[in-house]
Design a protein around this nucleic acid. Structure first.
Lengths: 332, 332
DNA sequence: GCTGTCACTGCACAGCTGTGCAGTCGGTGC
DNA sequence: GCACCGACTGCACAGCTGTGCAGTGACAGC
């Protein structure tokens, strides 16, 4: 038995008794093929299980149908929701998603990411993690438009679309809400590897608090993960005094919330108010009811699509994703 | 300004003053190139931002480096965890993940899935959703090995590796645990679109209950989602009587759990015991503490890798993923 | 100086598709 | 019968890479 191979247009042409060009044309809308030939070709293709090789087709065009989706931890609830929404939307546009998990890259994230270019992706979308400068350069040199979601803006003059939730406004909303709840000693929890977006959320929060004369403790350590929130809560709440905590991410905030409630026996929002940022699907669950700053997933997805639709040579743009306070039950 | 294009080996050859073959060889380990030429070529490539085009390279080989990952809802916590682990593992093997979200396909899931073959994926891995017969045939005809994770086994004789958690044993473990807790009137919640795996979990559960003379109510409706658990709980617990519920998936079980506790004011496990299946990361969170049947993610990932490593012409295999009871706090 | 060896090097082709261009063939109008 | 037109059709090449094969040059051995 011969080793199974992919069926090619030549195989179909042989079976249908036409030239290979005819096969190609039978799959190109608007191309000149007789109805009879098209029917014979489709029948032969069906029999053999033929599918047009998009890889070879890409050689002819200047861009492929592939979009590189880069993320660090796809099990983060908000990232997962983004991934779900984005992959749906992209496929609706006839594009395919090439996934890239940076967690598997050891030291050389940069080399790992560059591998996306090996597949001639037409776009690279960064959902999390930083964008190494050489990757941005590489994308520009190859005409692959790059989209950064809530990532630090690249150095001046480099090509990359930015999609940014209004972190500063979000941070202010969170601060004002805690103040309205009567909090007088608060903390903000950021992950150690703080992206600009997360830093901006924290800084805007601190600025408002400073203006109102409220003392802020900053906890910055660990990954952007649930465990970080747990650790932060244990450490920050070891001694009483704190009455409000802002988790710079829902996942962190949920770690804080659960630890406060179930491990330390605090009443939220009775003893402590907790507020997050993102509005991940699970934040709404009745086990959490997390008050949080929502960055609209729809707006974020729409902006990404718009950025991707722009031609490769168009100048980079900046999209603003609106932010709003979602009242639930973790703030007094 | 000319339209930016991908840099090709010819461009590099021109700049480095060598033939295009030399460029190709400079990126092929073990090929005959002088050290001097290799250095010049790498320098030129670096300057231009050249990357080997894997799409074109694939034309020469009989398989690509692409693995198709198919799922229905990537924001399901367990699916997301699978995706995270799998993408990491595959990339460690030098393979890339082509994502396929079946949620974006309307009626023609089959056509949507077949599009994966357009990219000459070397494997198709189904994380959720059913495998249409024609897709299985298509994969076989093109020599792309197919891997089904907890999916219904395809018709006799078709080529597909099966990775199956021991659903029956899991269902039995769940039943026995509820019986040990003293439950006398129980329910099982399955989604409407029940896969064989989920059906098998429910059936094994029911069989044990029947053998012990315990009445079982079956709730089968809606998607495999949190909302299904919520609805089921509202409906099933409208009148008192039930003292144990088995959610065929952690996400469903969490919907039941949260609704019982926070909406209906029941004490779990005081008034009601709840048990799930999967052991998703969030089940462990102190806000839930869900007792559940764990299907080892490590074993599942390892089995998938093993299946993928097998040559295309090797006969299909069946991998068993062990299952174990994880005791937490939702069963008396 | 001649020959053989060895390390490279480049040509040419394969691998699969899309497409410009020229050619075929039937049909129509006169 | 002839010119013309329109609808197809196939050839040949482009697009990018990997590789067999022949060729080139240096160099050692005699």
């Amino acid at each position: 038995m011969t080793k199974p191979r992919f069926v090619s247009a030549a195989d179909v042409a042989r079976l249908a008794g036409v030239s290979r060009s005819a096969v190609s044309r039978a799959y190109t809308p608007g191309a000149a093929v007789s109805e009879a030939a098209r029917k014979r070709i489709h029948a032969a293709a069906e029999e053999l299980g033929y599918r047009v090789n998009r890889l070879a087709r890409t050689l002819h065009q200047d861009r492929s149908d592939l979009v590189g989706l880069v993320g660090g931890n796809f099990s983060n609830p908000y990232i997962a929701a983004q991934l779900d929404a984005l992959s749906c939307a992209l496929q609706g546009r006839g594009l395919q998603c090439l996934l890239m998990n940076t967690a598997s890259a050891g030291a050389d994230v940069s080399e790992h990411l560059a591998r996306l270019l090996d597949y001639r992706v037409r776009n690279v979308v960064l959902l999390s993690g930083a964008a190494p400068d050489d990757l941005i350069r590489l994308c520009a040199q190859n005409g692959a438009r790059m989209v950064l979601i809530n990532r630090p803006p690249p150095p001046e003059g480099t090509q990359a679309d930015l999609i940014l939730a209004d972190s500063a406004r979000g941070g202010r909303l969170a601060a004002e809400r805690l103040i309205a709840a009567g909090c007088r000693r608060v903390a903000v929890v950021v992950s150690g590897s703080r992206t600009t977006a997360k830093k901006a959320r924290a800084e805007a929060f601190c600025a408002v608090m400073a203006a109102r004369g409220v003392a802020v403790t900053t906890w910055a350590d660990g990954a952007n993960a649930y465990a970080t929130g747990v650790e932060a809560a244990r450490s920050l709440l070891a001694r009483p005094g704190l009455d409000g905590i802002f988790g710079v991410t829902d996942e962190i905030a949920l770690g804080v919330l659960n630890t406060a409630r179930h491990e330390l026996g605090l009443s939220v929002p009775g003893d402590l108010s907790v507020i997050g940022f993102d509005d991940a699907p699970i934040s709404e669950w009745s086990s959490h009811g997390l008050t949080t700053i929502r960055q609209s997933l729809d707006a974020l997805t729409a902006a990404t699509l718009e950025a991707i639709d722009r031609p490769a040579e168009a100048p980079p743009t900046r999209f603003a994703v609106p932010v709003e306070l979602v009242e639930r039950t973790t703030v007094a």
